[in-house]
Design a binder for these strands. Structure first.
Length: 536
RNA sequence: GCGGGUGUAGCUCAAUGGUAGAGCGGCGGCUUCCCAAGCCGCUGACGUGGGUUCGAUUCCCAUCACCCGCUCCA
């Protein structure tokens, strides 16, 4: 399947539009049209229902170490800036970078250093990515090469002062980049604000800077105590949240896959440290199965454990659920969801302050004066087991899914071109979205075969009877074949058609999207028939 | 961020230094008893901003967006 055809269908049938298209579009932002909003809503609702509302906390689900509770939360997108300092996002997302036009490499501005040198009446700054003694040798070597000197002519280089940071250099036109052979190839330092910055308060200045959340998870961690105190939930339990998050992706690309505004479906599952490995295994498998159950094919979906080197400094295990999107090279997969064992990193961070790994231990990061780099809340976020009277900091398993990525995967999986006979029985090309019935934006369409002989009246009755229960669509325009094809393109699983026989015996035909098969049922049984076929 | 490509109607594609044409679609009508049929009519576009020119959709520059490759990626 060509991605362009899916993108074209999404636009033509109202699934996805480029954001602000009338103004030429905005990179990394997308709008869901009338069909798209239903599809994405169905994805979200399937997730919420399956993970939260239909979960029975009295039973032990297959594969789970024990019974557990699930509850929900909906946090503000904007939170106290300290949240992001302690979570580590602030430091991670705030780098000044310089790019080299020649080497195509990108450097952290604060990590590049170098020395001034004069030779042949020409004063240049020789930059290096490394520091210390190594940098002295490197810059010497680079300067020799640049001025075309032989080893014995090293004395011709007149070094001007010690190794200094690139940030002391005003003008890059006389700067030799770390991997460049010519001068002036470095761009101005640019701040990479991977978090969206804004101002809280109408008169707010720099000190009122706040951030749009780059993930929903932190809202759950900082509300952990509130949830415990207000709901009587007992460990093990999970808190689920669906909501928008924002990241300034450097390269938004591949349709909605890497968007700057996106929606997450996250669970933070809190458990006793000693049972956390089993819970990690449980969620890993459960979340993988969820995508299979909603129609993603086993061939295109995989569960991949991260290598040790790939793990974040705080994670004791992470697995990605990945889909072979058609825009990726064959054999490549894109992340739909990450299931991470995060230990007690997050709750501890919000108690003690930003943590770093030191000698295999997570310790509070200190500044130059030996004080915490970012102070935590100071609140006790530990958990007291009221039965055993044990107090501990729960460990966290985090299944974090992308709602837009899941929606895109379901669209890709559903897109299908096959052949259907036309009115002369000749096979013609048909485009159909074979959505799982739970995800289909429209569950059924109702047609009169022709717009006369009282058929529209009966069809409208059926439509009105279905409308309160299911998302249905009525159409009486043009030939019935065309109407079927239109429904195929938006993935409607069933069409109900009123014909001449309906007027005689009260039966209607039901037509199946995937098989094109038709059968008759009494017109009064449409709702029951659809409910059983849709399994809803 | 870099390099290459693309940008004309809702979609697919034409033509042109003198203000754009088709097919499909959509809408209305006629016809039509099961898979994009037929007939009639209607609808509708040069991504944006500059420049050159008497005149630019066409040439030039910039910009925005998309695609491909590289880079980056919590």
């Amino acid at each position: 399947m060509e991605m362009e055809q899916l993108v074209a269908l999404c636009k033509r049938r109202g699934f996805l539009f480029q954001s602000s298209e009338v103004y030429g579009g905005l990179q990394g932002f997308w709008d869901y049209g009338p069909m798209g909003v239903e599809l994405k809503r169905n994805v979200r609702e399937a997730w919420w229902r399956d993970m939260v509302t239909s979960h029975n906390e009295l039973d032990v689900p297959p594969g789970a170490p024990s019974a557990f509770e699930m509850t929900g939360l909906d946090c503000a997108i904007i939170m106290h800036p300290q949240v992001w300092k302690c979570s580590g996002h602030y430091d991670l997302f705030h780098d000044y970078m310089v790019d080299c036009r020649e080497s195509k490499r990108r450097y952290r501005y604060d990590q590049v250093c170098g020395r001034w040198v004069t030779c042949k009446s020409h004063r240049i700054f020789v930059a290096s990515e490394v520091g210390g003694k190594e940098a002295e040798e490197l810059t010497q070597h680079k300067a020799m090469k640049f001025f075309d000197l032989r080893a014995k002519d090293a004395a011709a280089l007149d070094w001007d002062g010690p190794l200094v940071s690139l940030s002391t250099v005003r003008d890059f036109s006389q700067t030799l980049g770390p991997d460049a052979k010519t001068l002036g190839t470095l761009t101005e330092p640019r701040e990479f604000n991977l978090m969206f910055k804004t101002i809280a308060g109408a008169l707010g200045g720099e000190e009122d800077t706040v951030f749009l959340r780059p993930e929903t998870a932190q809202g759950i961690f900082v509300n952990f105590k509130n949830v415990c105190d207000s709901t009587r939930v007992k460990i093990p339990f999970g808190i689920a949240q669906i909501g928008k998050s924002f990241r300034n992706e450097i390269t938004p690309r591949n349709f909605t896959f890497r968007s700057r505004e996106f929606e997450q479906m996250e669970i933070e599952f809190f458990c006793r440290p000693e049972t956390s490995p089993q819970w990690y295994q449980y969620w890993r498998g459960r979340r993988y199965q969820w995508y299979l159950d909603l129609g993603l094919s086993r061939e295109r979906l995989r569960l991949r454990d991260h290598e040790k080197e790939e793990l974040s400094h705080y994670s004791c295990g992470t697995a990605d659920i990945e889909y072979a999107f058609p825009f990726l090279a064959s054999g490549e997969f894109g992340e739909l969801e990450g299931v991470a064992h995060r230990g007690d990193f997050d709750l501890r961070s919000h108690m003690e302050g930003k943590l770093v790994r030191q000698d295999g231990q997570l310790v509070v990061e200190l500044d130059g004066e030996g004080k915490p780099r970012y102070r935590g809340s100071g609140k006790d976020l530990s958990y007291l087991d009221e039965v055993t009277k044990e107090r501990f900091i729960p460990h966290v398993i985090e299944p974090s899914a992308g709602a837009d990525r899941a929606t895109l995967a379901f669209l890709c999986e559903a897109y299908c071109e096959d052949e259907a006979p036309d009115e002369h029985g000749k096979p013609t090309r048909r485009v159909v979205l074979k959505f799982h019935p739970r995800l289909a934006p429209i569950k059924a369409a109702v047609f009169p075969l022709v717009k006369k002989d009282g058929m529209p009246e009966v069809a409208r009755e059926i439509y009105a009877a279905l409308k309160p229960h299911l998302t249905v669509f009525y159409d009486e325009k043009s030939a019935v074949g065309r109407r079927y094809r239109r429904q195929d393109e938006i993935g409607t699983p069933f069409c109900i058609t009123v014909d001449g026989q309906t007027l005689q015996d009260g039966t209607v035909t039901v037509r199946d999207r995937d098989t094109l098969r038709q059968w008759r049922i009494p017109k009064g049984e449409c709702l029951a028939e659809l409910r059983s076929r849709l399994a809803m």
